Amino acid sequence: FACQWLNAHFEVNPDCSVSRAEMYSEYLSTCSKLARGGILTSTGFYKCLRTVFPNHTVKRVEDSSSNGQAHIHVVGVKRR
């Protein structure tokens, strides 16, 4: 389900990036709304992400508004 969900909601775009945590959060929200069992852990979800978008990269984005915490963004992917 996770791989199908990724294909339905995201697409390849080399000029874009999406927060990896936001992607997983949206996946969890969809699973909750659909009352799905067998929800992937974040590790399983990221493995699926690598399968669906094998050419993506990740980058660390520093967020000055959150006490220097960094966010991981998936580069080469955008929301549909």
Rank of each mutant, 00 (worst) to 15 (best):
S25D: 11
K47D: 09
R60S: 11
F10Y: 15
E62Q: 12
T30F: 09
V12N: 06
S66C: 07
E62S: 08
P54S: 08
W5S: 01
N67S: 06
E11H: 05
V75F: 11
C31R: 09
Y24A: 03
G38V: 14
S32N: 12
S29Y: 05
V74Y: 15
S42T: 15
R50K: 07
K33H: 10
G37A: 10
A70R: 13
D15Q: 15
L49S: 01
G44C: 06
A2V: 12
F1S: 09
K59Q: 15
H56N: 03
R20D: 03
G38N: 08
F45Q: 00
P14T: 09
N67A: 15
V75I: 13
Q4S: 13
L49A: 08
E62G: 09
L49K: 00
E22W: 04
K59M: 02
D15S: 04
L40G: 06
G76A: 03
D63C: 10
P54N: 03
E11G: 05
S32W: 04
V12K: 11
K33I: 04
K47S: 10
E26A: 10
T41E: 06
G38P: 13
R60H: 03
K33Y: 03
V18A: 08
C16Q: 11
D63V: 10
C3I: 05
G38M: 09
R60C: 04
S42V: 06
K33D: 09
R60N: 04
V77W: 00
H9K: 11
R60E: 12
E11T: 12
M23E: 01
F53T: 00
V61M: 07
S64T: 05
G37D: 15
F1E: 14
C48T: 14
K59L: 02
C16I: 15
P14I: 03
R20K: 11
A35K: 12
A35W: 07
F45W: 09
S66D: 15
T51G: 12
W5N: 00
S19Q: 07
F1L: 03
S29G: 12
Y24M: 14
S25I: 02
C16L: 10
S29M: 09
G76T: 02
Y24G: 00
C31L: 10
L28Q: 10
Q4A: 10
S19G: 12
N55E: 13
G44T: 07
V18P: 00
L28E: 14
C3F: 11
A21K: 04
E26G: 13
T57L: 09
G76F: 01
I72W: 11
K33S: 11
H73L: 09
C31G: 12
A70L: 08
Y46V: 08
V58A: 08
F53G: 01
F10P: 00
H56I: 07
K47C: 04
H56R: 02
G76R: 02
V58I: 02
G44A: 09
V77S: 00
C3M: 02
K59R: 15
I39Q: 15
V77Y: 00
Q4H: 06
R60G: 14
W5D: 00
L28A: 13
L49P: 01
Y27P: 00
Y27Q: 00
F45P: 00
S66G: 10
V74P: 00
R60L: 13
A8H: 06
Q4K: 11
Y46G: 12
N7R: 08
H73P: 01
R20S: 12
G68M: 11
N13H: 07
R50Y: 06
V74G: 10
S65N: 04
P54D: 03
N55H: 09
E22I: 11
Y46T: 13
W5P: 00
L40E: 10
V52T: 05
A2C: 03
E22S: 14
C31W: 06
E62Y: 05
F53M: 01
C3R: 02
E62L: 09
L34F: 08
C16D: 02
S19E: 08
D15E: 07
V75K: 02
E11P: 00
E26D: 03
A21L: 14
A70G: 08
A8S: 06
L40H: 09
E62C: 07
H56E: 02
N67P: 04
G44W: 11
Y46R: 12
S17W: 05
R20A: 06
F53K: 00
Q69L: 11
C3G: 01
I39G: 13
H56Y: 03
D63E: 02
T30S: 14
L34E: 14
V77N: 00
V12H: 02
W5V: 02
T51S: 15
E62M: 06
T41A: 05
C48H: 04
L49R: 00
K33F: 02
T30M: 11
S32C: 07
Y46E: 15
S19N: 05
Q69E: 13
A70Q: 05
V18I: 13
T57Y: 12
Y46A: 12
E62N: 15
V77E: 00
N7H: 05
S65K: 05
V61Q: 14
E26F: 12
P14H: 04
I72T: 14
D63P: 04
S29A: 10
V75S: 08
I39D: 07
E22D: 13
A21F: 08
D15R: 05
S65H: 13
Q69A: 14
N13K: 09
C31Y: 02
L40K: 06
N7D: 07
R36Y: 11
L40D: 02
K59A: 07
Q69V: 10
E26R: 03
Y27R: 00
A35E: 13
R50N: 14
Q69D: 05
C48S: 11
E26H: 03
N55A: 11
K33E: 13
H56S: 11
S65F: 02
C3K: 01
V74F: 03
S29E: 15
S29K: 14
T57K: 06
E26L: 09
F53W: 09
S32F: 02
A21H: 02
F1W: 03
T41V: 07
C3H: 04
G68Q: 09
C31T: 07
E22R: 08
Y24R: 03
P14M: 11
V75D: 13
P54A: 09
E26T: 05
R20F: 03
G76E: 01
S17L: 06
G76Q: 02
G38F: 05
I39A: 13
C16E: 08
V18H: 15
L34A: 11
N13W: 07
L40F: 04
Y27V: 00
H73F: 05
T41P: 15
A35Y: 06
H73Y: 13
K47R: 04
L40A: 09
S19M: 09
A35G: 11
H9F: 14
Q69Y: 06
N67E: 02
P54V: 08
F45Y: 01
V12M: 14
E62W: 14
Y46W: 06
A2L: 12
L28C: 07
V74R: 01
V77R: 00
P14K: 03
C3A: 15
L34D: 15
F10I: 02
S65W: 04
V61E: 09
F53E: 00
F10G: 00
R60D: 04
G44I: 04
R36H: 06
S42I: 15
C16N: 14
C3T: 07
F45L: 08
K33A: 09
R20Y: 03
K47M: 04
N7L: 09
V74K: 01
S19A: 07
N67R: 12
T30A: 09
G76I: 01
N13G: 12
V74I: 10
S64L: 06
Q69H: 02
V61A: 12
V52L: 07
R50A: 13
E11L: 06
H71C: 15
V58L: 02
Q4T: 12
D15K: 04
